[in-house]
Each structure stands twice: as structure tokens, then as C-alpha cells.
Design a protein around this nucleic acid. Structure first.
Lengths: 162, 162
DNA sequence: TCTTCAAGTTGTACTCTACAACCAGAAGCG
DNA sequence: CGCTTCTGGTTGTAGAGTACAACTTGAAGA
């Protein structure tokens, strides 16, 4: 693990910049988080997987979109989305309506049940997050949120993971 | 989505505390990250899944441990760990040695090949992270890293996700 | 019209995962 | 000692999530 050519200010006694160490930590912690998230989400909400949850969330936010848009936005294969959507439809959480303009596309909408489930899971997730972040000073919460947004703003197709 | 009874200082014009909004954002962004991480890690390093990677990493860090320890540490079923370890052994990345004391346990060690692959994937992941974080001021990197560590320090079994 | 493109579906296969049933060695206890 | 119980690990089975390839159907252009 060579020190690499970062040209930043601070360096620790070990010759490694503080930025280097921080990047290392960010990598490790993001990885740890990712590893656990899916499983623990599944344990908490067996009725709605992490993927289904985010798909429903996107639908709610957009108010309706095409399967292809979901695939592109989440970097999933269209077959995967097709099956996910089919499952959500079977469960009565989304409905599809043929586009009047283009008969190939079907626009997806949340049903009432879908909206309800989504709100319910969102609320329970919110509670869990709130509990977890309960003793953080507001200032830190705001900064952490900003960092995450900035981190995730990285374009989907780029090389960085996540 | 009711405002909920948070009793913190700042409130926005909309009557929602800044802390509330921040928690919301943290939840959304962590979820988004988790959803994408596994797939993108898999695309980047087909030779070493995210799970295998973290298992090898743990082995390197600890210098050898039991399958049960891995299962406990990562909240995985022992059967899952058993199969993962079997695959890693087939690939020649780890080796098992029977414990002299207790003939039920097999202690796992990284092989040379395992150490090499791990270093290689770590390096390539590090590069990707570095690229992604290239234009962050050092101060922000350090703070972000600290926040993540603090966030992940939440005990494994607790209700918060991740 | 003929070709090419785009949206979705279906067949197939692979990985990760959990749960349950099981085996083998260890430990405690009569 | 011998029985029960506990612990570490493997195997059978099943299900979710995913990708890739092949296909269908409708739209758009040459």
C-alpha cells in the first residue's frame, strides 16, 4: 500500500496524509454499511425488499414512469425491472397503463395500497434512523446529510462504487 | 408524514426541524448507496464479491479466525459462511487448519494468493474511491469519515438498518 | 415497404442467503 | 464410564435478485 501522490496539506507522522486515511476509512465504512443494509432491511420489512422499496419510492416521487426509466436510473437490467414490477403488480402495489402515444410503453403508477405500504415502511425506517441518530447534534446531522448527498451525486456509470 | 415530536433548536419556515430534514436525507442517501453498492462492486471485481472481499479483509486483519466468528461478526448464517469459505478455499485464497485443542473448529488463514488478490482489489477500490473524492477538501474528508464510523458503530443487533 | 430501433417479456443460469436437518467432537453430570 | 447437551460446521432445499440472450411487438426512417 504505497502512499500515492496526493498533494494535500496535512500529513501525519507516518507520512500518510490525513486525506488518505480518511478516504480509506470512508471506503471501509461504506463497504461495511452496504454489506449489511440489504439483509437487515429484509429482516425488518419482509413485505418489501430494499429494491422494491426504492422502486416504489421513485414512482411516488415521479408520479409515474416507464420501466425503462427505472432500469436506467438504478442501473438494473430491464429484465430485472420487468420481474420486479410484475411482482409489485401482483401484490397490487403498482398498476400499469398503456401510453396513448406509444403503444409499446406502459406507464407505471402507485396504487392506493402501494402508497399506503410505502408510507408505512418509510415511517418505520424513519423511526429506526431517528433512533440511531438520536444523540447526534443537529449540526452534525446536517453536515453528514450534505456529505452523503455530495458523495452519491457521482454519476451512475462512473467507476466509483456505490 | 407528520412532523413528529423532535425537540431540537432550529426549525425551518415549514415547521420541520433541520435535524428532521437531515435524518430524512441520511436515510434516503444511505439507502440509495446500499442499493447500488453490491451490483457495482460485482461489476468491478467479478473475481471477488463484496462478501468474499470483506471476509478476506477480516481474515487479513485478524490473521486467522473461525467460521463462526465470521458469521457472528457479519450477521450471516453459518451455512452461508460455510459455503463462502468453501468457495474461497476452492479458489485457493484461504486455507483451513484444524485446531489442535478442539477438533471441531478449523481456523481460517489467508493464503499467499488470497493476500495478493485482496491487496489488488483493495488497491483498485481505493483508486476508485480516491477518484470519486478527489476534489473534496481534506477537512470534509476527515469529517465524513468520522461520521460514517460513528454511524456504523451502532451495535449489530439493534433496530437501525445497516 | 423494408429495415432498424426501442420497450418489455421470457428462458436460463448463477450467486447469495436463510432455515432446517444433520454429523462430529467437547463438556458436564449422574 | 455413559448419557445428555452444547457447539462448530456441512448439506439439502428453497427463494430472492440479478444478468444475458433470444424473442415479440410496436414505432420510426430510408
Amino acid at each position: 500500500m504505497p502512499p500515492a501522490d496526493v498533494t494535500r496539506e496535512t500529513t501525519t507522522p507516518g507520512g500518510r496524509s490525513a486525506a488518505d486515511t480518511a478516504v480509506e476509512t470512508i471506503q471501509r465504512e461504506m463497504t461495511a454499511f452496504a454489506r449489511r443494509a440489504r439483509a437487515s432491511a429484509g429482516r425488518m420489512h419482509p413485505e418489501l425488499s430494499l429494491v422494491s422499496y426504492t422502486l416504489l419510492g421513485h414512482l411516488e416521487e415521479r408520479g409515474g414512469c416507464r420501466a425503462t426509466d427505472l432500469a436506467a436510473h438504478y442501473a438494473l437490467d430491464k429484465s430485472t425491472v420487468s420481474r420486479q414490477v410484475a411482482a409489485l403488480e401482483r401484490a397490487g402495489l403498482v398498476e400499469r397503463r398503456l401510453d396513448a402515444e406509444d403503444h409499446r410503453v406502459q406507464v407505471l403508477y402507485l396504487t392506493e395500497a402501494g402508497r399506503r405500504i410505502l408510507a408505512q415502511v418509510t415511517e418505520s425506517r424513519r423511526t429506526a434512523f431517528r433512533e440511531r441518530l438520536a444523540d447526534w447534534p443537529e449540526e452534525d446531522l446536517v453536515r453528514f446529510a450534505a456529505y452523503l448527498e455530495r458523495y452519491n451525486a457521482w454519476p451512475e456509470g462512473a467507476s466509483g462504487q456505490g
